[in-house]
Structure formats: structure tokens, C-alpha cells
Design a binder for these strands. Structure first.
Lengths: 327, 327
DNA sequence: TTGTATGCGTTATCAC
DNA sequence: GTGATAACGCATACAA
């Protein structure tokens, strides 16, 4: 900047003013802009954030061991949704992957070090180091997903229990007698909530034997889960898969077993991701508004950064059923 | 920090020394650490980078309009590979998504503003704003993929021409007479190179009519491409799909058309992504070492940041064929 | 309208 | 070993 000021024959203060839009004469402005272009000057963000106390950057963190970046079709959409509104607010979204404990430790340092003005955090827990540092620092943050122990912090999510109950009821309404579930990720709230909803829908008809548990929302695990279901209940005629990817796996197993879908067995999924349309037949499923989740979360942090009061309670988004041909 | 110094009864300089590991008496050290814990002090990165002239952060940029984060199964693996080595070097990887022209402009500002010490850039072009700013600033950077116009800049990639030629030759060697290609993303070097390799493998037997062009590496586009191939050449008995996702789409079309794979027509893909094993039958394909790509690129920037000379030429990684049951 | 001076929170170079 | 003090590059209140 010193160079620019000298080249333009003005003081550094004036240069700063044209950069930030203050009072400056047209003549000086022109000279300075020419000088800027000439010396190829770029302002130093570190210095700027030091004095401004803000970076115009917002962190996007998926706090999940071994980044399910690769697995979960929703994450990407959430990211893009968040980025859209952050971008509109001229905030740079920086996404931080936490693939190991060491990463988590470094990310917390990054957050607390003042590199970002706020953060969006996907799938966190209250006892997480990241959640802790956020609350401790009072960093403007919004969470996506709502683990039971996170109440009190601003979040946006969906009602997994209710969605699961609704789609199960709809499945039952197609006349199924023996309906089971491939339940995934029971250690996460999304997974256990979906099972809860399924159970609620069935009421007395619920049969624990008809629940196949798998660790993750994965295609291959879904195929395996369906195999187990078929073993314990060859007469099964309805299946609620905990996600579309899981449902796709189930479909594969059913085809291999010679069962027709939806004639012999009805299958429903969850997410309404690209899997749903890619399946044969296309899946009936719960629409999860992933991009909207990201948008709302971003709007939250933007408001928080602007000084707004954190909302008293979380935001729950609608999850309409989309009925296709698999049930 | 002022608070810490006062609470511990020392000067700020001494506090800084225990943080960075300098000579300091055990007594003072203990007092300071206690004070740090007590006031909940966290160092300010902005101030630190301002004086240190480094941030210990590296940008990871996928420079592709409308982030193919969602589409490309490789990106995630490249990211994780890169993060692994950056993490090892205690560097924070921050990934920047460019989903619009506005994003691109903001990301260039972010890069030039000194928020990162280096960058890894996936699928860039020489005339890109991002590439330009990188070269102009002399920012330590490594590119993944090697568009023809990028020579001179450090990169790591694979030999698409050769890989495509090899797998096509292998496909022909299974006795196929009429082999076609579903060529995707011909506007990108990866896409056009794979077509070039395919053509080279076939030599005189190459028939332009047997090339179906699709815009992106997508399942549904693959299904559509296969449909077109079947129209122009019902007797087709071999297909090279430009990616596994494309091949998966082709498989769907073939099944719908009543063709058996590999009996009636042999199909091969590219990437060796999760699609390959998910297909029925599992795909023969070209293994693309995505995580390694990320690792090597990260190693490059780490070396560059440490002051190493940029390598004279790019690094090309091996792409072994993996032969399964689809051909 | 513009120049000057001060401070943002650290590290690093000195003397002590 | 430790305490002052000068940068680092910028924004801004104040003076001119």
C-alpha cells in the first residue's frame, strides 16, 4: 500500500479510503486506482481482519469422523445451499473437513483463532470439542441437524420421527401386512429417530424381528440388511429403508431373490436423493430439503453475525412424501 | 494476551515465548499456563499471521462451474487424500467452492488476501481468474489434472489418453467386433483425452458413428448415450463408457433392451469408483488413484511452501486396469 | 477533501 | 530468563 500511495502521490489514508469507499476527490481516486493496477496491489486480509475484527469468512464443518462427504448425498446439497446465501452476503464459505482427531483439534484452533466470523456445523453433538469451542467463544453459529443434547443452540433440521412415521403409515395403507425396516446409523439421532417413527406408525403390529440394523447409510449395507430381513421373514411385503441408498441396496437384493417391486413387496426410502430416481422402479420416499437446510442455516449465521438475537428454538423444515412406483 | 500476562505477573513477551517454545523458567511457565486456562485465552490468528506472514492454511479449490462436488466421485477422495498429508504437516485445509462467477471473484480475493499459504486446485484452465492470480502472486500451488494449456505449472494427474487406449485394447481383445464409446465432457481434457485414446486403440476400425457424446459424467446421460448407440448400431457388442457412472447408466439401458452383459455386449468404465462394484455385473474399469492424486498435490504444495523449487514437469500417476465381469 | 497518528494482537530483536 | 519495543498492514478518529 505504501507503494501505491507514493505512486499516486497521496497518503496511505487516502488509499485506504478509496478501497473502503470514503470521501475522496475524483482526481485522487483515479490516480490511486491507476497506481493500484500498476503495482498490482492486493489488500492484506490478515491486517484488515486484525483491525476490523472480522474476516468476512464463515466456516462450514461436517463434524463426522471419517468425513461422510463421500457417503451422504445430502452434504453436498447442504453446502451448496449454504454457499448460495453466504455468497449473496459477500461472505466466503470455507469448509473444514475433520477426518481425524488431529483434524478436529486443528479445526477448533482455526475457529477460535479468529479466521472466521461464524460457522455452520453439520451433525454435531453437545460434547464435541467443536461445539464446546463454539459455545465458549460465543461464535455465531448454526447447526444442521438436532441431536437431543443440542437444545438451546440455534439449529435447523427436519423431524425425522414424524417423517418416518408418515411414510410408514402410507406404506401400510397400500395394504402391506408384514412390514420391516432396514435401520441405519442408530448411533445418530437421524437413525434412531427414524426407527422411533417407524415403530410409532406400526403400533401393536411392530415386530422387533423385522428390524435389520446396519451401521451406515450405505448401498451395500442396505443389500445386506434386506438379505437378513428375507431370512427371518420370507413373507415380508413392505420395507422402510432408512435412506434411499439403503433402499437401492434392498432393491438389488429383492431382485436377486426374485421378488417383484412393488407387486410382491413395497419399498420406501428416505432423502429423495439422486438414488431415488436412479432406482428401478423409482423410489417412493421422504423429501429432505437439503439445499434449504443449508440456506436456512446460512441465513441464521448471517443474522447472528449482524448482531441478531439467537432464536429461542430450532427451525424444523417440511418433509413432504413423494410417492413414486416402489410402493 | 494482556490479561494473561497480568494475571501471571509477567510481560507479554514471556507469554508469547511459552506459546511458541522459547526459553522460560518453569515457574513462569506454570503461572502462565494457569493464567491461560483461567482467562480462557486463545491466540489471535489474524495478528499472528500478520507478523509471521503465514497462516498455516492451504486452500483446496475445485474450479468447476456449479461444483461437481455432487457429481464426481473422485473429488471427495482427492480432498481426503490431500487433507491427510496437509494435516500431517499441521496445515489446515480450507476448501473453497466456486458455484458462480461471483464465487470465483471472491475466492481470488481470498487467495490473494493472504488467508492461505498455498493452494491445491482441481480442474483449472490457464485462462481462469484463479489460475491467473496464483501465477501472478507466485502463490505456492499444485494443480490436479493437466489441461494442455497448463504446462509449466506444477501438477499431478493421470494419462487419460493412454489409460483409455489400454482399456479399449483389452476390451477388443475379448473378441468384440463392433465397439463404441459413450464420450462425456469433451470440453474437458479428461473427456477429450479419453476419446483420443479410444480412437487410437481402434485405429482403422474406428467408426465415428459409434461415438455417442454426452455433456457430463452422469448416470442418466450414460443411459441416454447407450440408447443412441443401440439405435445406430443394434449389433454393437462392446462399449467404453467415459466413466463408471456413465457405464452404470449404459448397463441400465442394456438391461432394459434385453441385452446380456457381458455375453451380448462387453462394457468397460473409467474411475474404479464405488459405482464399479455397485453395478450388476461389476465393472471392468480403469483404476484412478484419486486419494493419491490428492496426496501428491498436497506434498507438492507443502514442499513449495517450505521453499522447494517447483518441479520442471508434472507428475503422472499409474492407472492400472481392473478387470471384473462386465467385459 | 486529505494527511497524521494511533491501535488492532502477535512475534522478534534487543538490551537488561 | 525476562521485559520493553519495534514492526506487520491496515482502518479510522482527528486535525488540518
Amino acid at each position: 500500500m505504501h507503494d501505491v500511495a507514493r505512486a499516486a502521490g497521496v497518503s496511505r489514508g487516502t488509499v485506504s479510503r478509496v478501497l473502503n469507499g470514503g470521501y475522496v476527490s475524483p482526481a485522487a481516486r483515479d490516480a490511486i486506482q491507476a497506481a493500484i493496477a500498476h503495482v498490482g496491489y492486493v489488500p492484506n486480509n490478515a491486517a484488515r481482519s486484525l483491525v476490523m475484527q472480522r474476516t468476512k469468512a464463515v466456516g462450514f464443518i461436517v463434524h463426522e469422523p471419517h468425513a461422510l462427504f463421500l457417503e451422504d448425498p445430502n452434504i453436498g446439497s447442504i453446502m451448496l445451499g449454504a454457499n448460495a446465501v453466504l455468497s449473496e452476503a459477500d461472505l466466503q464459505m470455507v469448509s473444514l473437513v475433520t477426518d481425524s482427531d488431529r483434524d478436529i483439534e486443528r479445526v477448533t484452533r482455526y475457529l477460535s483463532g479468529g479466521f472466521v466470523d461464524g460457522a455452520i456445523i453439520v451433525s454435531a453433538r453437545a460434547q464435541d470439542p467443536i461445539t464446546k469451542v463454539v459455545t465458549k467463544l460465543g461464535l455465531p453459529a448454526a447447526f444442521v441437524g438436532h441431536p437431543p443434547d443440542l437444545r438451546g443452540l440455534p439449529f435447523v433440521g427436519i423431524d425425522n420421527v414424524r417423517s418416518a412415521r408418515e411414510i410408514t403409515e402410507r406404506l401400510v395403507a397400500t395394504g402391506r401386512r408384514r412390514v420391516g425396516m432396514i435401520a441405519a446409523a442408530l448411533d445418530r439421532d437421524s437413525g434412531s429417530d427414524r426407527l422411533t417413527g417407524f415403530r410409532a406408525a406400526l403400533g401393536d403390529a411392530f415386530d422387533p424381528a423385522l428390524v435389520a440394523e446396519i451401521p451406515l447409510y450405505e448401498f451395500s449395507a442396505g443389500a445386506e440388511g434386506m438379505r437378513r430381513l428375507l431370512d427371518v421373514a420370507p413373507d415380508i411385503d413392505g420395507v422402510f429403508a432408512a435412506s434411499d441408498a439403503v433402499a437401492a441396496g434392498a432393491l438389488r437384493t429383492l431382485r436377486e431373490a426374485g421378488r417383484r417391486v412393488p407387486e410382491d413387496v413395497g419399498v420406501v426410502g428416505f432423502d429423495d436423493s439422486s438414488w431415488a430416481l436412479r432406482c428401478q422402479p423409482p423410489l417412493s420416499t421422504v423429501h429432505q430439503p437439503a439445499p434449504l437446510l443449508g440456506q436456512r442455516a446460512a441465513e441464521l449465521v448471517v443474522a447472528l453475525i449482524a448482531g441478531a438475537e439467537p432464536p429461542r428454538e430450532g427451525i424444523l423444515l417440511d418433509t413432504p412424501l413423494v410417492w413414486r412406483e416402489s410402493a
